[in-house]
């Protein structure tokens, strides 16, 4: 049973010629199918509108109106995606709704030729096309696309590229909408006091710091019992190593260690901000003043609103620490 070695994820790394690495999350068949469906609805809506206009003008112009309709149908069918992707920087309305964008595999915006070719080649990706007659319905028209060619090709490469993407060296990625979390707020002063009891010579490794940050960011979402259960794994050996009383709260110990790693050793300004609930990565004072004057939204986005709060002192563990 052999397998590849790289981690299986939808995130990929693109390294520029300047040796700068960007991380993108590639959009797979599910998200792209949704975007396609939205675009299909828009196209059908436009065609319906054009059809109504044709019916109205058909009374006067006759065949010319029908010719106009056929031209509109042709343009929509073949160039809808290409035009939008060229002039909306790799997005169609459907892609914009789903938050995805077409880029080259080097992370650059696509050009008009790439947009046209990848959209024209969609007609291959939607193969094989079936007839209703195959299912016993007497209508010998091949109108049911299965998209199996596209799906198989997408499933067999890491960037979820369909045939059009492979030919044009493009890929579809998710637009980044992640907030960088600041330092988590520690409301409970016991964590800060406990930090003073930790041995000064204990080296917090990079992976330990990452694990602590991960724990403190997420612990607010867990129940008290689950928090104890999770913290116990690292808390127990740390307590032994530090020579602290065995009934010290593991959760508080990890918070104290987090405080040591990210706040206490960083400086007075960061410590003040964490105590006041501000992120050390917050905006400069001028920006804050502008926000206060109503020039910017006064509420900060997700990370600040979801800051982790330690529960007030309670239970035998807390009593032991204090």
């Amino acid at each position: 049973m052999q397998a590849d070695v790289a981690q299986i994820d939808t995130k990929i790394e693109v390294v520029t010629p300047e040796n700068i690495a960007f991380h993108y999350q590639v959009a797979g068949p599910a998200r792209r199918a949704m975007a396609f469906l939205i675009d299909l609805v828009i196209r059908l809506g436009i065609l319906f509108g054009v059809g109504c206009l044709t019916a109205v003008f058909g009374i006067v112009a006759g065949g010319v109106a029908i010719l106009g309709y056929l031209i509109a149908y042709f343009l929509l069918d073949w160039f809808y995606g290409a035009l939008f992707e060229t002039f909306m920087n790799g997005q169609t309305p459907g892609k914009r709704v789903l938050g995805i964008r077409v880029l080259t595999v080097d992370g650059q915006p696509i050009n008009g030729l790439q947009a046209v070719i990848r959209n024209v080649l969609r007609s291959v990706d939607l193969m094989p096309v079936l007839s209703l007659e195959m299912f016993g319905i007497p209508a010998p028209m091949y109108i049911i696309p299965t998209f199996m060619v596209g799906l198989v090709i997408m499933a067999t490469n890491r960037r979820f590229q369909r045939l059009g993407d492979l030919v044009c060296r493009t890929m579809v990625v998710m637009e980044e909408r992640q907030w960088l979390a600041g330092v988590a707020r520690l409301d409970d002063p016991r964590a800060m006091r406990l930090a003073d009891y930790l041995p000064a010579d204990f080296q917090i490794t990079r992976t330990l710091a990452q694990a602590l940050a991960h724990y403190v960011e997420r612990r607010g979402y867990y129940s008290e019992a689950r928090r104890r259960e999770v913290a116990r794994h690292l808390g127990e050996p740390l307590l032994r190593q530090f020579g602290l009383p065995h009934d010290t709260s593991h959760d508080l110990l990890l918070c104290a260690l987090y405080y040591r790693a990210f706040v206490a050793d960083v400086g007075d300004e960061a410590r003040r901000k964490v105590r006041q609930g501000e992120s050390p990565f917050g905006p400069p004072d001028a920006t804050a003043a502008a926000a206060a004057a109503g020039q910017f939204p006064r509420t900060w986005p997700l990370p600040q609103q979801q800051m982790v709060t330690l529960p007030p002192a309670a239970g035998p563990d807390a009593a032991r620490i204090l």
Binding site: A3, Q7, I8, D9, A27
Partner: peptide, 23 residues
């Protein structure tokens, strides 16, 4: 881990399952 362990939405789960099938 061989499969990246993190929170994912339904769409991403549908997508990454193809990666797992491929690998």
């Amino acid at each position: 881990t061989r499969i990246a362990v993190r929170e994912r939405g339904t769409m991403e789960l549908l997508d990454i399952s193809w990666h797992v099938l491929r690998c």
